[in-house]
Amino acid sequence: MKRFEKFSSKSILLPTDNIDTDQIIPARFLKITDKSDLGKNLFADWRYSSSGELTDFVLNRSENQQRKILITGDNFGCGSSREHAPWALVGYGLRAIVSTSFADIFRNNALKNHLLLITLEPSEYSQILATISSSPETEFTVDLAEQKLSFDRDSKEYSFHFPIDQFSKRCMMEGLDELGMLLSYEKEVANFEARLPVYPL
């Protein structure tokens, strides 16, 4: 995995609460055996009409192409455990999601794919919404090392600190491979297994 570097981008705004992973990537796209093409089908049922034409959904607006930050409502990513959801978000080109809260399984899946989840206090989130509604072209800077999301508004700099568990942060910052770390515990796992009760079947 690549190291997660500081970056800046304008944002895409989708301020709906409780967006579930069935919306992020509908189940009919889960029949793949690899990870390709998921970005194209991100939010497919909101993005394309039944006849396959583009709708006026935010992701389809020309100014929103290439943006790397999604700003969205409470409890983003609830529902199914499909990792296809972060794969689709990353496949589309997003690198950070900003919300007031995220669902548990989605959080694990996202961080493992180095998609940063930025959880803000409701008051901070409201300020972000207000900023975007007055200046949709605001540029945000995401700094994982400092755990800071910052932007300028009316020539004043705002900076919000966000929490992240230190293990996930280290994995993302250093581009660590979790599986490699788990494999390095081989001896501990073997010792643990030696103590397990065995049932003759």
């Binding site: 972060p86 399984i105 694990n108 794919n113 599986l179 788990l182 494999l183 515990y185 796992v189």
Partner: peptide
């Protein structure tokens, strides 16, 4: 699968995981 919680009815700690974690459990059981 997120409905793995079903198995908790037996007094087990049962939870859904993503595919990266499926790979981790396959390889390490952890």
């Amino acid at each position: 699968d997120s409905h793995t919680a079903t198995h908790g009815a037996f007094g087990a700690l049962a939870f859904g995981i993503g595919t990266t974690e499926v790979e981790q459990v396959l390889a390490t059981q952890c």
